[in-house]
Design a protein around this nucleic acid. Sequence first.
DNA 1: TATGAATGAGCCTTCATTCAT
DNA 2: CATGAATGAAGGCTCATTCAT
Lengths: 210, 210, 210, 210
Amino acid sequence: MVRPRQKGNTRKPLKRSPSLKSAERRSEIVRAAYRTLAEKGFEGLRMRDIAQRAGIDHSTLHYYFAGKEALIDAIVDYIVLDLAVGRSPAAESEDVSPRLRLSAHFDALIKQLQETPEMFVVLAELNTRAMREPPLRAIFNKNDRKWKGFLTEVLVSGMQKNEFKGTFLPEVAAEAIISMIRGLTITCAGRPELMRRPLYQVLTWLEGTS
Amino acid sequence: MVRPRQKGNTRKPLKRSPSLKSAERRSEIVRAAYRTLAEKGFEGLRMRDIAQRAGIDHSTLHYYFAGKEALIDAIVDYIVLDLAVGRSPAAESEDVSPRLRLSAHFDALIKQLQETPEMFVVLAELNTRAMREPPLRAIFNKNDRKWKGFLTEVLVSGMQKNEFKGTFLPEVAAEAIISMIRGLTITCAGRPELMRRPLYQVLTWLEGTS
Amino acid sequence: MVRPRQKGNTRKPLKRSPSLKSAERRSEIVRAAYRTLAEKGFEGLRMRDIAQRAGIDHSTLHYYFAGKEALIDAIVDYIVLDLAVGRSPAAESEDVSPRLRLSAHFDALIKQLQETPEMFVVLAELNTRAMREPPLRAIFNKNDRKWKGFLTEVLVSGMQKNEFKGTFLPEVAAEAIISMIRGLTITCAGRPELMRRPLYQVLTWLEGTS
Amino acid sequence: MVRPRQKGNTRKPLKRSPSLKSAERRSEIVRAAYRTLAEKGFEGLRMRDIAQRAGIDHSTLHYYFAGKEALIDAIVDYIVLDLAVGRSPAAESEDVSPRLRLSAHFDALIKQLQETPEMFVVLAELNTRAMREPPLRAIFNKNDRKWKGFLTEVLVSGMQKNEFKGTFLPEVAAEAIISMIRGLTITCAGRPELMRRPLYQVLTWLEGTS
DNA sequence: TATGAATGAGCCTTCATTCAT
DNA sequence: CATGAATGAAGGCTCATTCAT
C-alpha cells in the first residue's frame, strides 16, 4: 500500500541534475506503459506501442529506460506508489469509528474499481506475474503486510470499542479480507457493484450479529 | 522441367516416438502445454517449448492443433474439465453434515493446491486473460455459477440443519467464499497452509459463534 | 498442338500390368491438379489441395506421383495431349476452303476459350514458367512448330487458291498469328468475344482487300 | 523482477552498409525484388533472397516494406512507371511520319527486349498473376488503354497521310498489335530478333501493299 | 493400396535493441 | 536529446515428403 524499495534516484545516475523535464517525460512514459499494460497484458506489451502512446519515438523510449525490463520495474514502482487501494480520509482517520472506517475502506475500494478499472487489470497482471517472479512477489507481500497492518488495527480497535463482536482473530480476519478483495477484483472485473454484497457480508460477520 | 531449388524434406532416417494413439497424443500435448503455461505464463508460452516438452517436433504439434489459439482453447477445456477444485467425496456427499462438507471442501482445496500448485498458476493466468477476453470470461463465469450453486446448497442445508447459525444470505456468502478462495490462491501461492486460517475463519462466521 | 515427348508408359515402371484402375486414378489426380493450377497458379499450388480435390489422401497422391515435380510434368503431358487449341473438323479438313479453315480455326479457338477458360490460365502459367525452364520451353516450341506448320499449310493453299491475296510470307504470317493468339488469350482473359475483331482483322489482311 | 529468458538482441558490433537515403534504399530494394522476381518467378520469390540481393538484412527489408504484398505492389508501381515499352523519341514525335513512328516503336520494343529481357519475364509473370487478381488486371487494362490510344493515333494519322492504305479499323488494328506484341514477348523470349519479321509483316499489312 | 502420423527445412513476420547522426 | 535505420534472434506456421501400418 506504500512505496516499496526506494531505488528511485539511484537507478539512473545522471551527470547533470536530472532536469525536471526529463523526470516528467519519464513518468509520462511510465503512465503510457501502464495503460498499455492494462489494455494488452504482458503478453502483448510492446515497446513500440508504449512509445507511440507516449507520443515519442521508440528509440527515445530506450533513451529513458534501459530496456523493457527497466520499464516494467518502473511500472511496478508507479503502481505501488499509487497503491492507495481502498484509501480514503474516513478510512484513514483514527477519529472515526472502526466500523465506519472499514466500510469507508470498502466503499473507497469499490469507487476506485469503478473509476480506474485498469488499475485492477494491471494488478491482476502483476499478481499473476508475481507467481513466477519472487522479487515481484516480495514487493506485493510487503504491501500486503502494510495493508494487513491497517486492517488489523481497525479490527482491533473495533473490538475494543465493542463495535466488532464477532468471533475472530483480527489478523486472520484481515488476511481473509485482503484475499477476498483480491479475489473480488478478479471475479467482479467490470461490474464493481457486485463487490458490495460480499464485502458487507463480512462486515456483518465482524459485527457479530447474533 | 527439372525443379531447381531443393524444397521440402529429403532427410535421413529417424527415431520416432512410440506412436501413441491420436487422442492420447493430443492430451499428452495439452498436458505439456499446460505445464509450460504454468512455468512461463502466457507471456513466454512458445509452441516450440511445448513441442519439446511433449517430446515431439514442433510441426507435429501443428499437426494436432491448428494453431496456438486452438491449443490454448484445448488447455482451457482441459482445465475446466478437470476443474473439480475443492471436490472431494466428503464435500460432495449429501449424507455428510453441511459443516463437514464445507470443511472437506476447504481441505480438498488446500490439498489440491499443495499437490498441484501449477494448476493455480494456470488458473491465475487464465483468470487474468479472461479480463481481456469475454469468451474466456464467460467460461469462468459459467464455472463460477456451478461452484456457487454447490456452495449455496451446502449453506442452505446447513442453515436448515441449524449448523450454520450465522447471519448471512447463502448466495452472498457463497460469493464471498468463492472470491476469497480466488484471492487466497494468489496471496498464498506457494504456501497453501496459509489458506487454512482465513478459510476456517469464514467457517466460524457461518456457524455463528455468538 | 500435339502430344510432345512420349514418356507416358516409361515413366513409372510397374511390375504388374498397370491396372486400369490405377491409370484412371492417375488421370483423375492430374485433372484435379490441372484445375487447382488454374485456380491458384504455381504460386499457391499445394499437394494437399490437389489431393483433396481428387478426393484422396495426400499420402496417396504421393503414392501415384513421386513428387510435386512429377505431378507437374504430368499436368504438362495432360495439357499438351489435350492441346487441340483451335482444332475443329472444319479447320482440319483439307476439303474446306483455306479461308474457311482459318476462320473455323479462330472460331474454335474462341469457343474453347469460352468453354474452358481455365485451360488458358494454365497455359499462361505454363508459358510463364517456360521462360525459366528450358525443357518446358522446348515442349512449347515443339508444339508451336506443329501449329505453325498447320497454319502455314493453310496459308499456302489459300494463296494457291487465290483466296489469300494479301502480301505476306506464309511462315511469317503464321508466326504472327500464333503470337497474336497467344497475346489475345492473355489480353482477353475472361472476355473471349474481344478476340474476334483482331482475329478477323488479320483474316482481312490475309485476304488482301485492296 | 529479473527477466529470465534472453529475448531480443544482444549482438556484438556490426558492419553497416554505407547507409543510403531512405528513398534510395527503397528503390534499391525494389530493383532487387524486381530482379529476383525475374529470376525466380512469384513461385520462388523469397523475402530473404530479395534482402540478400539488396545487400541488407531481411529485417531491414521489413523495415522498408510492410510485407511481401507491399513489396510486390511496389514492384508493380516500379514497372508501370517504367512501362514505356516501345517508347522512343522517334515513336513519340508527331513530326515523324506515322509509318516511321510505328516502325520506331517496334524497333524500340525489340531493343528493349534485347537490353532488358528480365522486364518481359516480369511482365509475363505479372500478366499471369493478373488473371487471378482483378486489381492487378485493372492496372494492366489501364495501361493497355493508353498504349492502344497511342497506336490508334499513329494509325489514324497514317491513314490520313495515306501512308496506311490497308483495310482496317485503327482501334482494332491497335488491339491486334498489342496482343501480338504481348504474345511475341512470350514466344520469342530469349530471341528478340524473332520478333522482327512478324512485326514488320503487320506493318506491311497496314501499308496495304496491293 | 492407402493413409495417419511425423518431420525438417524454410518462410514471413515481429520485436527489443543498438548505432550513427 | 532524439530519432531513423538496421539487425539478430526467435516465433508461428506451412509444406513436401516419408515412415509405419
